[in-house]
Design a protein around this nucleic acid. Sequence first.
DNA 1: TATTTATGTCAGTCATGTTGACATATTTCG
DNA 2: CGAAATATGTCAACATGACTGACATAAATA
Lengths: 169, 169
Amino acid sequence: MTDINIPDVPPSLHDEEVRQGIELLFFAYRDFTAEPDAILARHSFGRAHHRVVHFVGRRPQMTVGELLGILRITKQSLNRVLGQLVRQGFIVQHRGAQDRRQRLLELTEKGRDLERQLSAPQRARVAAAYRKAGAGAVEGFRKVLLNVIASPDDRHRFDRGRGGRRSHD
Amino acid sequence: MTDINIPDVPPSLHDEEVRQGIELLFFAYRDFTAEPDAILARHSFGRAHHRVVHFVGRRPQMTVGELLGILRITKQSLNRVLGQLVRQGFIVQHRGAQDRRQRLLELTEKGRDLERQLSAPQRARVAAAYRKAGAGAVEGFRKVLLNVIASPDDRHRFDRGRGGRRSHD
DNA sequence: TATTTATGTCAGTCATGTTGACATATTTCG
DNA sequence: CGAAATATGTCAACATGACTGACATAAATA
């Protein structure tokens, strides 16, 4: 956006670099979701189930409201997949201690198993990419993606030392 | 994947770093698609239309088969959105010169308008992220994402000098 | 006590992915 | 040349996961 946008004038080199970044995100995301999608299909689950299992695994005792805020979907959409995961024993809910309206979410052992299966190909893919690219590149990758994230609150999820405290850490 | 996966043992620091990378991709992709999605909704279009307009804009004279290979969806899925874009005058098709079975795809002026509108928020977001992160970080971002992409053919789309030759460059 | 909040649920719609079957035009192979 | 393979299009049925809108309940808060 440092360029003035005049139609029928060649895009600048800068524009080409930015458009390649956009395309990189498309291809990387496409491939990064393909393997878990295949595993999910065997359970008759979809990508939405993966997202729920991922975030509940990362942040045990998360409330339904927090999950809605992260996923940015409606509660009706969430409740379909969350309900399936609860009924099939992947997630348990229990009332909040201070606020008894809240339903705190947690993976069961079966849920942790599923999470490990789903994340295994993603972890392998990202770990291999990190290894090939090197530590400096990883730092750049983090910096750029953090700045692509719109909300400061969401960026703060990645502040140093604030990793996903898994229940058995 | 340099770690041995023993259940009920704390994930390593390495694992935490990789899991943060996975999560960064989720949040960045979520925010990176939100603004174009809102514009698409005003046209009664969805994200699939955006992908088609993006790639046809980047690679004019692309064939239907090439587009299918990039999007990794079925021709039936593609034909629904492609048909809408053609009937509404965003894309024109014409027979290939050498192979007359092919339908070469190209944006109309109306299509280029739509492409610019849809990509504007994404270009602004990525350009701002690049600016804030710095040139070295951008190089790292590219390196990591290239290695996340599974197919060498798709990675080669980003070889130096092989930018998307827009028709009016 | 009245209101707001956190959550759940019913019902209907839409976009976009899938599979499977079949059609047509064109190119390529034996 | 004729048969097979290829590029594309189309019909139909179905699943997933978004959406809106309306309404319900329990618990916290003003």
